[in-house]
């Protein structure tokens, strides 16, 4: 055994392998511990947003939809509410809004936006955000042609419009296939 160990072709790879094994397992352990925490933080934010969308407890099933990555769309989920209506919920991000980008959910049905809610934004004293915030329902009913830019929040409104246009375009492509 001692002679085997002296042989450097055994010693070196063995020690390297041993170290790598030990540390990969340590890393896996840490990941195992911290991943749920990180994921749960993100999920909590999304859950809050979903609850605002269609009301608490009204969602009976959720199903992820695959899509081609675009600038504004983060993820798409097909949601069925308790009254058996299908909605497509888009997780969107605005881009290039001067005062700060927003991450929000928009539910689309029949080519129109029927609900939306913000993820993770709680206190933002931005005038634009105030105009579009969860209670105001400004984006509801948008179907690609009737967007009214809020006076005094032109830049923010344009940001939302661009994001929603991307979502509506995807929705149109879905129904085109169907």
């Amino acid at each position: 055994m001692k002679n085997l160990w002296e042989n450097k072709f055994v010693r070196l790879p063995l020690s390297l392998a041993a170290v790598c094994l030990v540390f990969s397992s340590l890393l896996a352990l840490t990941n195992f511990v911290t991943d749920p925490i990180i994921a749960s933080m993100q999920e909590e934010k999304e859950k809050k947003a979903y609850e605002v969308l269609y009301g608490e407890g009204n969602i009976s099933s959720r199903e992820e939809v695959t899509f081609e990555a675009t600038d504004n769309i983060n993820s798409i989920t097909k949601v069925v509410t308790t009254d058996n209506v299908e909605h497509y919920v888009y997780n969107l991000s605005t881009k290039n809004v001067i005062s700060g980008d927003f991450n929000f959910l928009a539910g689309i049905k029949d080519g129109k936006v029927d609900a939306y809610s913000f993820i993770g934004v709680e206190n933002n004293n931005n005038y634009g955000f105030a105009e579009f915030s969860n209670g105001k329902d400004r984006l509801v009913g948008y179907d690609g042609s009737n967007f009214s830019i809020v006076s005094g929040a032109t830049n923010t409104s344009n940001g939302f419009k661009t994001a929603l246009d991307a979502a509506l375009a995807h929705y149109a492509s879905l129904s085109a296939e169907a």
């Binding site: 540390f23 990969s24 340590l26 890393l27 840490t30 911290t34 991943d35 990180i38």
Partner: peptide
């Protein structure tokens, strides 16, 4: 490895 562990812990 240790740096990655610290990074994961900090992210969490």
């Amino acid at each position: 490895s240790f740096v990655t562990m610290v990074q994961m812990l900090m992210n969490a």
